[in-house]
Amino acid sequence: MTRSVTAPIAILFLGLLMVFDHATSDLNPYKAPPIIALGSGVVASGGFCGAMPE
């Protein structure tokens, strides 16, 4: 057996994640933040591994 079997499994995993995500949440591009944070005047608020809970 070669990686030609296992590599597509990783993509399949992401595909399942997308299906699950689509089923449990909505997307609205009109609520998206400005394309670039730098210079936007908007405070950075994304989740980050170093951040303590607010």
Binding site: I36, L38, S40, V42, A44, G46, F48, C49
Partner: peptide, 14 residues
């Protein structure tokens, strides 16, 4: 990543 997201590159939160 820093310029676009306003935060540094990270992995484990996601």
């Amino acid at each position: 990543n820093l310029v676009v997201a306003g935060q540094p590159w990270g992995v484990v939160y996601g």
